[in-house]
Each structure stands twice: as structure tokens, then as C-alpha cells.
Design a protein around this nucleic acid. Sequence first.
DNA 1: GCCAACGTTGGC
DNA 2: GCCAACGTTGGC
Length: 139
Amino acid sequence: MKYWLLKTEPSTYSWDDLTRQKSGVWDGVRNAEARNNMKLMKAGDLLLIYHTGNEKSIRGIAIVTTEAFPEPDESSPWVAVGLKPLMPLSIPVSLTEVKSDPTLADMSLIRMSRLSVQPVSQQEFNQLMVISHTKWKAG
DNA sequence: GCCAACGTTGGC
DNA sequence: GCCAACGTTGGC
């Protein structure tokens, strides 16, 4: 089981939108590396939802329900995945906090700041649970 | 509003 | 195939 981080502009589509809908389709990704990461996702992988713009913070945890499939109604090379919200972080983790935490220094959030779909390591995920005071029960 | 970091496009 | 110009993302 792997971990990923998904960026979204909350005025376009937010963690709260996903929570309200109870399930969603993550589409509109227009970057080759991000698409490649989406294709690597397996059902059951965990997703951290990050808000760009004014908020710049990780808000919640979702899970992959449907692995990569071609975007509907388009003869395009781009893909989407299905996902379901699991729980919000008790305290959102801001970009500033991520940058100030040495154990998170290698996160793509910092090192490849424009990549909108990026892998997160188990250690990084665990640390994010700690600093967000989120009682995540693995497995 | 600016700009750094990329990615894409098109002329050559 | 190179690279300048341009567009986009997203932090500041």
C-alpha cells in the first residue's frame, strides 16, 4: 500500500467538496509525471489532499477506490482515479510546517513544488499524522 | 503582482 | 535536435 499527495485549488474543488459528495473522481491532471503517478495508484492506496492558494495546507485523508481510467467523454491521453474521503486531519498541516520539519525535507511538496500528484513515503505519512494530531489507525 | 521552476511549442 | 519564446503553476 502506497501513499500519495494530491494538490487542489480549494476554490475549484476542495476537501470539503469531496467530503460532501462522499466519493469523487480526481481528473483534470495535465502533467505527464502526475499522470504517471496516478497510473501507479492501486485501490486502497491512501491520498493526502492538499489545498494550494491561500490555504497551503494538507487537509484530509482519502482512499483510492478506482484505479486509473481514461477521462470520460474525451479522446484524450489523460486519466482519472476514483476516491473516497476517510477523515480530515485533526489539525491541517501547513506548507510552512512541512518546510520547517527536517524529517519532511525530502517531500516533493518542497522539492518539486509544481508536481500536483506526488508520492509520499510511509515515514512522511506517519510524521504528518503526528504533527497534525491525527489518530490514524493503520490497516 | 511578481517571479522561479518547469513544460510546451515552433522556427531553424 | 536545439533553444528562445511563451504559458502555467503555485509560492511569496
